[in-house]
Write a protein that binds this DNA or RNA. Structure first.
Lengths: 241, 241
DNA sequence: GAATGAGGTGTACGCCGTACACCTTCGTCG
DNA sequence: CGACGAAGGTGTACGGCGTACACCTCATTC
């Protein structure tokens, strides 16, 4: 109690307040307009104070992405995978339209954040529950590409042990990678299923290297061109010339 | 001639050498690794020297994009629009794979450069010559989205007079915009045709505002989901499980 | 009431892009 | 021939950035 009067002390600031302020600022000033210094000022605090709550700007961005991705609606129930995927993707779109900077941040980030992986895993799960094969689901995810964001785009999907500690180990490294892999399989079963489908190589290196980007690209391209050709053939037109 | 010996003077550096050096550097150090200072050092010159050849870093990036886009093969001849578009897009892909930084730069740039507009215009032209309606072509371009890069992505395509000069005019502004519009229609006829299709509003504001992003997004999404559903129904599998 | 540790501060470093004034070199023209 | 003007290169400096590091200030706990 005591000296509470003289201070009008601002309440102590925490990771969540920092992230929310950052999101708000990016929403209105854009990605470029977001700096640690500006953000600190807005929070009435010296720049270095932020570093008590986020390790650095990269982690700030990651945290912001987590917040945005958290706004996406949970998956729809029901047997119609087509409807469920559609609804989910459109919900993602709504979230990203609310935060226009977010897509760029998600895509520029080398390693996807957990919330992103959760989302992708769950979309994959919807395809799989709908009865699509692992194979087709894999290609479908690539084809959706940045329409569900983040799964296409060359990024070697997530080699899991990126954040580790000691440099000491030697054979340790492989063990560690395998352990990480196992943890990942538990948490993101569908992603791992898809990533490792087909070839039964050693676990670690397969994750990113296992698929043929060129094939994926042409698959998606042809899907689109086929669709367009079909519409053309049947004289399709959007009502509203 | 005279004192040529003592100097070993480097030949005088020009815009093209600067751009090529920048491309080379970005190719091997990535987008982040490209700084005016670093580039200058590589060219054996003081940073400010670069500014005699490019106005600023933005223009440097634009110039680099022009070079990369220039590597895309010219459009294929022949009556098969599907083949022609496919070939063109795959050629674009090859160019962009050679310069992995380029896609990001193209997409982050607010206003497309002329070479980009040329490319887009010519792809559109291929669809149109194949007999596709303006309407369908429009949606097809959106659906291809970043697969042909740059045409989707909310960016309000190119309001043409962005680089002008004096702030003086008043009614002048509209005239100037119309003139720019006309020039644009001459240079990029297909883009303008598509952008202004349907509604016959006043010229200027129509360019970006004239299309319904949500519709375009759902069009593309459904094209993909339809395709996937069709493949699923017929038990499709990529040979190579 | 001393110890602890979380949260906030101040200073400083090394990057960045680039404005501005200056110097050098060289082709042109009187 | 010599003066000149422009094109190209230099040097210095400014304001911004992210952030390392040492410090201070409290509230909490034993």
């Amino acid at each position: 109690m005591a000296q509470q009067a003289d201070t009008e002390r601002r309440k102590p600031l925490n990771r969540d307040r920092v992230l929310r302020a950052a999101v708000a600022r990016a929403d209105q000033s854009g990605y470029e307009g977001l700096s640690m210094r500006g953000l600190a000022q807005e929070l009435g605090v010296v720049p270095m104070a932020l570093y008590k709550h986020v390790a650095n700007k990269e982690q700030l961005l990651d945290g912001m992405v987590e917040l945005v991705v958290g706004e996406i609606d949970p998956p729809a129930e029901g047997p119609d995978w087509r409807f469920a995927v559609r609804a989910r993707v459109l919900s993602a779109r709504r979230a990203l339209l609310r935060h226009p900077w977010a897509l760029r941040v998600i895509e520029s980030r080398g390693t996807p954040t957990p919330a992103v992986l959760d989302y992708l895993d769950s979309v994959i799960g919807t395809f799989r529950r709908g009865g699509l094969s692992v194979d087709l689901t894999h290609h479908a995810m690539h084809a959706l590409g940045s329409r569900v964001w983040g799964f296409t785009q060359e990024l070697s999907v997530a080699s899991p042990g990126a954040g580790g500690g000691s440099e000491g180990g030697d054979v340790d490294v492989d063990e560690r990678a395998l352990a990480a892999m196992a943890a990942m399989a538990e948490r993101y079963p569908h992603i791992v299923e898809i990533a490792t489908a087909g070839r039964a190589h050693d676990g670690a290196s397969v994750v990113g290297g296992g698929c043929d980007d060129q094939f994926e690209f042409e698959f998606a391209l042809d899907l689109l061109l086929d669709g367009v050709a079909r519409l053309h053939a049947q004289g399709w037109t959007s009502e509203r010339g």
